[in-house]
């Protein structure tokens, strides 16, 4: 398979980030989404680690797909994914140790994140290396975006901050980068948002929001198609 065209790449990216977003459309990988989205830094860091694993696993699986007997697909894919996650785990432990301590068990758990295996099965085992790498990476980025938005919302509503814990990634000097939307002296806290229920509620709103946007775009396309006709169909979405 030759290197892809720009149009193909765009289609893959759009599909990964928007149409089939693994967080809010496929609703896969809920375990890390719900736990690690209590602030932006945790969410985005785990999302990027997952993206990295998916980029490499997509490429690796696409590269060896010709040599893998059909009936041995699953064990070999899992072997590859687990090996890659172990490597990412060790590398994070060496280079971003503080963050590694925070993310803890959720890094090894990337192995069991069904998004990774799902993309290996559904995409990488049928497509070329470049395509699969791109698909894997942007599927990961799509999840990262969801984790980031959810993290930002929960952090803001729960603690009145943004980017708390950034010093875990960029060193102690970064501590002053934390944005206190609500002054720190007030000791503002809204526990519901920080604890797991906040993740469920927040994710619910994100899914609803995505659907609303999709429907509006659909309705608009329909309107454009039959410009002459009056459209009473768009009603009902205005409250979103």
């Amino acid at each position: 398979m030759s290197i892809m065209s720009w149009a193909e790449a765009k289609a893959i990216i759009h599909n990964s980030i928007w149409k089939q977003n693994q967080g809010v459309v496929a609703i896969l990988g809920m375990c890390p989404v719900l736990v690690m989205s209590n602030n932006i830094i945790n969410g985005v860091s785990l999302g990027l680690a997952t993206s990295l694993v998916m980029l490499v696993s997509g490429a690796a699986i696409a590269a060896i797909r010709e040599f893998v007997p059909n009936e041995l697909r699953s064990p070999i894919f899992i072997l590859i994914i687990a090996a890659l996650v172990t490597m990412v785990d060790l590398l994070m432990n060496s280079y971003v140790h503080d963050l590694y301590v925070v993310l803890g068990i959720f890094i090894p758990l990337i192995t069991t994140n069904c998004i990774v295996l799902a993309r290996a099965e559904a995409f990488a085992s049928k497509n070329g290396v470049a395509h699969s790498a791109l698909d894997g990476f942007f599927m990961g980025i799509g999840l990262t975006v969801v984790l980031g938005i959810l993290g930002a919302g929960r952090e803001l509503i729960g603690k009145g901050t943004l980017l708390s814990g950034i010093d875990l990634v960029f060193g102690p000097a970064a501590k002053s980068w934390v944005i206190h939307v609500i002054p720190a002296e007030w000791n503002y806290q809204f526990l519901l948002a920080i604890l797991p229920p906040g993740a469920f509620i927040g994710l619910g709103f994100l899914i609803a929001g995505k659907m609303a946007l999709d429907r509006r775009a659909e309705a608009r396309a329909r309107l454009a198609a039959k410009a002459a006709e009056p459209a009473g169909l768009v009603e009902g979405q205005s409250h979103c």
């Binding site: 060896i64 040599f67 893998v68 007997p69 009936e71 041995l72 064990p75 070999i76 072997l79 590859i80 090996a83 172990t86 490597m87 060790l90 590398l91």
Partner: peptide
Amino acid sequence: RGALTLLAFSVVFTALMAGTY
């Protein structure tokens, strides 16, 4: 053939992990 394929993959990826370790 299946067993050998699995073996080959295991060896390669174990080597990669051992290297990273």
